[in-house]
Write a protein that binds this DNA or RNA. Structure first.
Lengths: 214, 214
DNA sequence: CTCCTTGGGAAGTGCCACTATCCAAGCATG
DNA sequence: CATGCTTGGATAGTGGCACTTCCCAAGGAG
């Protein structure tokens, strides 16, 4: 299909598609001659993923490019490739090591991981952007005076562990590594908002049950 | 304290604080004379909340103003006030009613709520921005070809219901309605990222257990 | 041959969260 | 009292980002 058809089928303007091509978010089509290029279903699918990343996941274009680079890098092993793609997603800004709230948060997170027996997470530790951003987030909570200690987080962490186990079960249904990594990215960027929406809906439901609708 | 001290203690530049004052995110200080205004601990606390909303929660300034307006509105009842504050938070864009993916998503969400017995959520239905954005998110998943039906979501929803019950328990420890609403906003904007970080950390942990660290 | 379409690149737009500058009024110190 | 800093308020400007507009040369259709 031509660029204009790609545009029509995806609902994305040709100008924007050209912009994504320039930014390297989308592979160029097969060049038929100087003024014609042909695109196929894989381009359409990738374009939809890009749109979802940017519009739903609010991922900046530059980060999206990094993420997709790892998704496409077939030279990496499955685990590394998965980690590389997910770690390229935007995280909370890194914590300030000096800040007393950060020091307290680091201690709480470590205590939490020990309590839960999440040894791999402790081993990876500050190497993982996820770990660092968790510390930064807990520090923010502490700074605002909300209790956010290991005891508070542990039951939530256990719920999230159950969700994660289910995520990986779902991922294992994919054949190729590329599909798996792409689904992991989708899961992180698109399924997490679903989870969040379910969470808020559950809060509304629970609140209505306890206090009524009025 | 003076503006400059408020700035020093919060780590926010005076220029930015003046901007927040202008935008109505922060109440003006007590005016001592033409060139001096005095701020207190409540201003510092509110300023930290504003920063957290904007920087951690990525809430646009205009939305933050709406949210805080409801937090401060003591004329409303507890439930309404809570709902008003949370519904002012930015949500996924509203779904396109025409789109077949949206129609399918609406059906799945309704089926999910019936399965779970979340009758209040069904009753509120499309009135709730949360409900609408859930539909939009499910539609996006469907459009990308990922299964996102009632059966897939139900176990996750049950986990989120447990989390929500815990959230409300925590909220009930607050005395005044204002504190409760503020904590609910903090919970939505700041604790949700904590939950998400725990989720991703759990994925890393689980992935390391299943496939090793290599 | 003429006109419309196509793909590509450079420059411009609009939004948003700040930020720099200016100004007049205090206050502090010598 | 003079000088020079700080303060709060207002206005205009900045930088980043996700597009979007404009223009051009090359095809292809009639």
């Amino acid at each position: 299909m031509r660029l204009s058809e790609l545009s029509a089928r995806s609902g994305v303007s040709t100008a924007t598609i050209k912009y994504y091509l320039r930014e390297g978010l989308l592979a160029p089509g097969r060049q038929l001659n100087a003024t014609t290029a042909e695109y196929d279903e894989t381009h359409l699918r990738r374009l939809r993923l890009v749109r979802a990343l940017i519009q739903v996941g609010r991922v900046p274009v530059a980060s999206a490019r990094e993420v997709l680079k790892h998704v496409d890098d077939e030279s990496l092993g499955r685990t590394i490739r998965l980690g590389a793609a997910l770690w390229a997603l935007p995280q909370a800004p890194d914590p300030d090591e000096e800040d007393p709230a950060t020091i307290a948060a680091t201690a709480e997170v470590d205590r939490l991981l020990r309590t839960l027996g999440w040894d791999a997470a402790r081993e990876i530790g500050a190497l993982s952007p996820v770990h660092r951003s968790l510390v930064a987030l807990v520090a923010t909570q502490i700074r605002l005076g909300y209790p956010c200690d290991a005891e508070t987080m542990a039951p939530y962490a256990e719920l999230m562990r159950q969700a994660a186990a289910r995520d990986l079960d779902r991922m294992e249904t994919y054949e190729s590594d590329t599909e798996m990594v792409e689904s992991a990215v989708s899961s992180a960027v698109l399924f997490e908002p679903v989870l969040r929406a379910l969470h808020r809906l559950a809060q509304e439901e629970e609140s209505a049950r306890r206090y009524g609708l009025g």
